[in-house]
Amino acid sequence: MASVSIDNPIDETTERRSKPARLAPNYWPFVMPALLVVSAVIVFPWLFTLWMSVNSWTLGQPRTFIGFANYLRLAQDMRFWESLWHTTTYTVLSVVLPLFFGTLAALVFDAKFPLRGFLRGIFVMPMMATPVAVALVWTMMFHPQLGVLNYLLSLVGIGPQEWIYNQTAVIPSLVLVETWQWTPLVMLIVLGGLAAVPREPYESAEIDGATAWQKFRYLTVPMIAPFLMIAVIIRSIDAIKSFDIIYAMTQGGPGTASETINIYLYNTAFAYYDIGYGSAMAVVFFLIIIALSFVLLMVRARANWSDMEER
């Protein structure tokens, strides 16, 4: 190498200088396909949605530009605010409950006991079922007369419940299904976290005088916090966007008692064909999700003990 540059120093410097210049025109053909695809499938739909949201456009009728009227209507739409509230409770419960039970299950399955692998396999099965199948099975189980849940309750002397057919019980019932299906995912994430936790600090803690509870509280919880945060992020984004299970089981009913933003949006756009208003709703919903993601990412950065120097 050294001898080459000594023999031919001029050639090398000219080559080095001209390289970027020669490459630049060749760049674009390689970037273009990706750019085109991204524009077509991501940028264009968004711009189109934004455009529709400032128009009054019911399918089959002429479209007129109305500025921010759709957004103003949204602000005064009680049904929208109600659906926002439904979305919030549904999301919070669908994050907290799987997180709690998933962590508990992870702690159980982290210990060694006979048949552990087999039982863990059974435990993660709900996660693999398709939402519509899950909805079907649970709808049958929730049936007030024929459902197995009321039968089970009757065994312990509790009277029949109306489950998803009751205005106040419907969201908790849906959350029950969501929890049943997604607790295993949280468990898997937390199990991964537990496996990554170093063992030595536990011996230190033992010597330092920690009880089992104190070890859990002061070592395990903070050390798996980054993994809990990942579970919270995945679950939050999933739950806030949840559509399939709700639509398949209640279509937002009874009445509008389980109508989340997503369902209301769907009904507006595809049942009432009010595309412009639906688009405005989609834009607002999107902003809410962005805000939520932002908050979650910030919290996550704080929970990360293995990456402290970034703080």
């Binding site: 803690a205 070592l219 916090a225 003990w305």
Partner: peptide, 9 residues
């Protein structure tokens, strides 16, 4: 301990 076993967090 030989590997110190400090509390990393």
């Amino acid at each position: 301990f030989q590997n110190y076993a400090l509390y990393p967090h």
